[in-house]
């Protein structure tokens, strides 16, 4: 946790991020005060009295009120969690104040320890944010009657659900070509796969036959009926 604090404090420009010890009650309180004074500035200056009294017993009370006023989601959590949220909140505010300055900053790609796995499935490389993808999803959704949703992947999941249910709804006549063409392609690919599978099955059967087969006939047994 302390490493995380160090990173965030450095980012916020704290004078002594290296020396900060979160276990020390006094240092903790002073960091909270520093955040409110320098970064968050939620209260007017005169309202910050409660937080400024670092040595007072009432500081704790003031800190709780402060968190409630900020609507912190972790005001029931541990001290460290509370501080971590405050730090993140401060970072967020800092970024919001200077979007133009920060938005082009790119994090340096950390060196990958594992070798790059090249995916053979073309669908893995699909750009889900591309306009072409979104337009395609939009078209399928109108055909299948799936309602609007901001996330195209979510809508695609809904379409998949519809396709899995059978019997399928029959397409509107105006759109049959749009549906039938890809369906035909998929059917042919499927049949090709199936043929390969069936051939392998037949080969396996023939291999077993080499061991088991012993067809015999005995004409002496034959008898023609009346």
């Amino acid at each position: 946790m302390s490493n995380m604090f160090k990173l965030k404090l450095t980012a916020l420009g704290h004078p002594n991020p290296e020396g900060f010890n979160c276990e020390d009650e006094k240092e903790y309180r002073s960091v909270v005060l520093w955040l409110e004074d320098q970064k968050i500035r939620h209260y007017k200056i005169e309202e910050r009295e409660g937080l400024r009294n670092i040595d007072s017993d009432t500081w704790k009370e003031a800190y709780n009120t402060y968190q409630k006023d900020l609507v912190s989601p972790v005001n029931d959590g541990t001290m460290n969690e509370q501080l971590n949220w405050l730090l993140s909140y401060a970072v967020r505010l800092e970024y919001a104040d200077n979007v133009t300055k920060y938005k082009d900053v790119k994090a340096e790609q950390p060196k990958q320890a594992a070798p790059n796995v090249v995916s053979s499935n073309p669908l893995d490389n699909l750009d889900f944010d591309s306009p072409a993808f979104k337009a395609g999803v939009e078209r399928i959704c109108t055909l299948t009657g799936v309602g609007p949703h901001p996330d195209p992947k979510f809508r695609l999941a809904a379409v998949a659900k519809i396709l899995k249910t059978s019997p399928h709804p029959s397409p509107q006549t105006t759109d049959t070509f749009n549906i039938n063409q890809p369906v035909d392609v998929l059917n042919l690919l499927f049949i090709q796969d199936l043929r390969e599978l069936q051939t392998k099955i037949n080969e396996a059967l023939v291999a077993v036959q080499m061991i088991t087969a012993d067809p015999r006939t005995d004409t002496k047994l034959g008898k023609v009926g009346r």
């Binding site: 015999r216 006939t217 005995d218 004409t219 047994l221 034959g222 008898k223 023609v224 009346r226």
Partner: peptide
């Protein structure tokens, strides 16, 4: 035919 018998033992 009726009553015929096969030649496969």
């Amino acid at each position: 035919g009726v009553g015929s018998k096969g030649i496969i033992p």
